[in-house]
Design a protein around this nucleic acid. Structure first.
Lengths: 238, 238
DNA sequence: GATCGCTATTTGTCTGACTAAATAGTCCAC
DNA sequence: GTGGACTATTTAGTCAGACAAATAGCGATC
């Protein structure tokens, strides 16, 4: 994931990130109007054009809306592209609410089992091989390492991809981001995470065997257990 | 929907739309490098800054990636935010492939029944009232009118909202867009569309009664029938 | 009291110059 | 020849300052 810094290393990207975090964390409320471009860019010590490009980024993700005379205002939450990978990163940069985390898992619980079932019917050999390699890597390196976590994401990614559904696959970057951040959460509190491998292998076996129903069930169990672990990490008295 | 023109009425928005459509329609392939900013902005007869803002919008939606010396290149399809409402609009502006349409319905088929079930458990009275009003409006105006279609979208929107899940609700703009465009498709070919009201009322009744399983089933049937209608409209020999 | 038009404010657009990053190619050392 | 450091060049990135267009809100007019 060395690509990360690309957008944030440029001024417009880092300003977008700063403002984006401020917005999703509630520092600005929907309806609030940002200072005008001249004042804002002066405060942030950047040129007006760099600031404007940052605003265009935020507008593209539905966080703000600009019009002459009125200014740039924060839009209603329901217009935000919360599943956009960058927006998701901004959300996780400032301790997301437990409610939001729960919602993310609920989404995974809806999408991933169905995707696993479709993958069982449609996967090709190359995808199967990539899933196997990801799980082996995950087994060798464990979720405590960046490489192991990347392998985990690779596995879930490939399942989505194997559905052959472009719209569904789009969710993989969101789900991948969710997986990543919640894994960090789980690691942060030093709860002993349960061994995730058996559940993963069951999903793999069902997909390999071409059994949609088994794949759905196995994935349901996998996500469900991950949810429990995260819940336990957040609320230790669980 | 008078808001529509806001982003496209500005130069940066319309350039983004033009390029966006060209990209999602395959006129530029992933990996292709756009002309440099100076040449491009001259060709399009706009200033370099307006062109750059357009590129920032496309980059924010994952369609392109810029770096010094290399230039701006079209990214791989799997990085595109295909569920972003604007991107979706661009896709539908250039006759999406049947495969993509099928994928969109598959997504609805996964998400909406589950959402209906959750909505049956969590909806509040206000949401229920909005659903009822939307259906009455839909009944009075029919899907042949813009008002009727807006009511249809309102209904599906409110179901998503009633799940109380922000991440799920984000999909409503995508699903709403999908509903809108496929409705246009269905109307375009002059197939006599089946009366959609009975199915909608069944979903409503189940949600009102607080019966998750009924709601899920009813929504499954609703989306399934819509899929059939669309398929018939595209491929008249059925 | 309603309507129309004006004006001040804000974003939008333009121009042109300079900066910084990244590649590709050269040249040197070995 | 082969490897690696270096430099030239191309590109996006940033900056500054001016002018244009849109529009919300106010005020004059009827």
């Amino acid at each position: 994931m060395a690509r990360e810094g690309l957008s944030t290393s440029r001024i417009h990207g880092s300003i977008a990130r700063t403002l984006g975090v401020a917005i999703v964390s509630g520092q600005y409320a929907p309806g609030d109007i940002l200072n005008n471009e001249i004042d804002s860019s002066e405060q942030l010590q950047v040129s007006r054009s760099a600031y404007r490009e940052a605003i265009r980024i935020l507008a593209a993700k539905g966080l703000v809306e600009s019009r002459p005379k009125t200014g740039t205002r924060v839009t209603e939450r329901n217009r935000w592209s919360l599943l956009d990978p960058e927006v998701l990163a901004w959300v996780f940069e400032s301790e997301p609410s437990e409610e939001f985390l729960k919602g993310l898992y609920e989404l995974r619980m809806i999408v991933e089992p169905a995707a696993a079932a479709l993958a069982a019917e449609r996967r090709d050999d190359g995808q199967l091989e990539r899933m196997r390699k990801a799980l082996i890597q995950m087994e060798n390196r464990t979720l405590a390492t960046e490489a192991g976590q990347a392998a985990d994401r690779d596995f879930h990614d490939t399942v989505l991809e194997a559905t052959g559904n472009a719209a569904l696959f789009t969710l993989s970057s969101s789900i991948g981001a969710a997986v990543r951040w919640t894994t960090i959460f789980k690691q942060r509190k030093r709860e002993l995470p349960r061994d995730p491998m058996p559940d993963h292998w069951k999903v793999f076996d069902a997909i390999a065997a071409g059994r949609p129903d088994y794949a759905r069930e196995a994935m349901e169990r996998l996500v469900g257990l991950a949810l429990e672990d995260t819940r336990a990490a957040i609320d230790p008295k669980g």
